[in-house]
């Protein structure tokens, strides 16, 4: 370490500790969100490529390949729209859900356990629940942007005909939070990494992806499997996405229920995460 006698006098800190504390109390969640943005900026290029690449790959494969085949054989099964239009809201929502799965598992484990990154800010004026909030804000935006890109690409493929279709960007992001925040609460309680994350991917996310009315309407499933759809945020997001995208006909109360269900699970996961952060960091 070098020594500079003058260092303390050259740059005087521009605010008192009381002012720091007051600012942190008010904006602390955003300060931590800012941290997560700086981390994401390190990966900006790969995130951007992934955000464009994934939709293109899916839409070409499903839209151009699979859809042509299905439309030739089963036209009319999908509420009067072509298969790609039927499928697109599900793809947008499931992409959001899948990035949420990663973002609400690994960084949380990293923060508490692997590299203990939450304990740095914990020693600052930030409160534990603000660290939780900041992560949620960061990931929320990190999901909203690629979801918007996905939607634009869907629109370019001509698979989002309705005027309100763009609202599905937000319902898809809500879906990501609806699944991600309870997941975050659970991961916040883990003290050991014993392969649970692979289990989540394989035995929760994959079945949700397959059985949430994604590729075919939920009511074509046997009744004893349909419950997966009802509890699946992805089904709710897919259904409301279809309503918004092409005016898929369903009762209004059901549309309200989709949003309410996703909102309620997201809020529950959020509050629970705050509580667990507070408790775990006060030990």
């Amino acid at each position: 370490m070098t020594d500079r006698k003058s260092s303390r006098t050259v740059l005087a800190v521009p605010q008192t500790p009381e002012e720091s504390a007051a600012k942190a109390r008010r904006y602390g969640s955003w300060y931590f969100a800012e941290h997560t943005f700086r981390v994401m900026r390190m990966y900006a290029v790969s995130v951007a490529m992934y955000s464009v690449g994934t939709p293109l790959a899916y839409l070409f494969a499903m839209g151009v390949g699979l859809a042509a085949l299905i439309d030739a054989n089963g036209a009319g099964r999908f509420g009067g729209v072509d298969y790609l239009t039927f499928l697109a809201p599900a793809l947008v929502a499931s992409a959001a859900l899948m990035s949420a799965t990663g973002e609400f598992m690994f960084p949380i484990m990293d923060g508490f356990k692997w590299r203990r990154t939450f304990f740095g800010p914990h020693a600052s004026p930030l409160r534990p629940e603000q660290i939780a909030n900041g992560h949620i804000i960061g990931v929320g935006i990190r999901i909203l942007l690629p979801t918007a890109i996905y939607f634009v690409i869907v629109a370019l493929f001509g698979a989002a005909p309705g005027v309100w279709a763009w609202l599905s960007i937000f319902t898809a992001t809500l879906c990501a939070l609806s699944f991600g925040l309870p997941l975050m609460a659970w991961v916040s309680t883990l003290t050991r990494d014993a392969g649970q994350f692979a289990v989540v991917q394989r035995f929760i996310v994959t079945p949700l992806f397959l059985f949430s009315g994604t590729f075919f309407p939920l009511d074509t499933l046997p009744f004893f499997l349909q419950w997966i759809g009802w509890i699946s945020p992805l089904w709710h997001a897919t259904e409301i996405g279809r309503v918004l995208s092409y005016g898929y006909a369903e009762p209004v109360w059901l549309s309200v229920l989709h949003v309410a269900y996703m909102g309620a699970t997201a809020v529950a996961g959020w509050l629970l995460s705050q509580r667990i952060f507070r408790r775990r960091m006060g030990k």
Partner: peptide, 10 residues
């Protein structure tokens, strides 16, 4: 810089 931001420092 990130750490200083937690204190609301500009």
């Amino acid at each position: 810089i990130v750490y200083g931001r937690y204190f609301g420092l500009p």
